[in-house]
């Protein structure tokens, strides 16, 4: 029997490495041109006194505000507590969404039982919970973490359910042909097949988590990046507000990049356009 196959070879190494690296730098450079120009215009307008500094301070002023906060050490306390809240809320929300979502996705009966009420709760704008949570759990950590968890829950839940429901029936048949029982089908086919959808849910859940951590800290906190927003408003210091916005943006971007990396690592088997 012929051991060699003459069909197409695996798609390895499509382009040379050096050419690839050049191409990868380009979009970043192109993308930084506009922000850079805007920053320069903003800085010069502030220096010339055209932009009033009590409304919109210059980028350098904002930057030195961040540096000062870092120098006296208070910055890390604020960042730390904010990260702690979002981490805990994210974990709680994502874990309960995964559990309930898998259950609802796998058992038809559970879907009929749970889905209507979950859909009903979903139609409540999550911020409407704030007064109730404060009433129940006070203004301390518990109510904040709960609010974030609620925000994270829904996107993750929806994606887990739809991921499981759209698992290819043909693959499940393969498992059945090998005599797998329901538990093995879930573990070996349904969960891995719905992993991509779960990860999409995690990323949009994280985005909402950041939104809700701001809301939670605005509603009353003595520390945290959101508290800096309030403090900046009360002390008429726009540089503090903008500094805190910048930090939120940075942290949000970094956490999303981390998740994206996890996604990329665990989904390397996917045949997707962007992986070329």
């Amino acid at each position: 029997m012929a051991k060699q196959h003459t069909e197409a070879l695996p798609l390895k190494g499509i382009a040379g490495k050096s050419a690839e690296r050049q191409l990868r730098l380009h979009p970043i450079l192109i993308g930084s041109i506009l922000p850079f120009i805007l920053l320069i215009i903003w800085e010069s307008l502030s220096r010339l006194g055209i932009l009033p500094s009590y409304l919109l301070p210059a980028p350098t002023v904002i930057f030195s505000t961040i540096v000062e906060l870092g120098a006296d050490g208070s910055l890390f306390g604020h960042i730390g507590i904010t990260l702690y809240r979002i981490f805990l809320g994210f974990l709680l929300g994502a874990a309960s969404a995964l559990l309930l979502g898998s259950f609802v996705g796998i058992y038809r009966k559970a879907e009929q039982f749970f889905d209507p009420i979950i859909q009903a709760f979903r139609s409540i704008p999550s911020l409407a919970w704030v007064p109730l949570f404060i009433l129940w759990m006070g203004i301390a950590e518990a109510s904040k973490v709960t609010l974030i968890a609620v925000g994270v829950f829904f996107p993750v839940y929806l994606n887990v359910v739809s991921g499981i429901l759209s698992v290819d029936r043909q693959l499940i048949e393969v498992g059945k042909m090998y005599g797998l029982n329901s538990y093995q089908l879930v573990k070996r086919i349904i969960l891995p097949a719905s992993l991509p959808s779960f990860l999409v849910g995690l990323r949009s859940g994280l985005g909402l988590g950041w939104m809700f951590v701001v809301a939670a800290e605005l509603m009353g906190a003595s520390q945290g990046l959101g508290y800096l927003l309030v403090l900046g408003q009360n002390t008429y210091s726009p540089e503090l507000i903008i500094a805190s916005i910048v930090l939120f943006a940075l942290l949000g971007k970094v956490s999303d990049a981390l998740l994206k990396k996890v996604e990329y690592r665990s989904l390397h088997w996917q045949d997707r356009m962007e992986q070329r």
Partner: peptide, 15 residues
């Protein structure tokens, strides 16, 4: 388990 099945499509687990 005495039967094996080969489908029209390969139906491999992509992961």
């Amino acid at each position: 388990e005495r039967l094996g099945f080969i489908f029209q499509q390969p139906r491999l687990m992509p992961w």
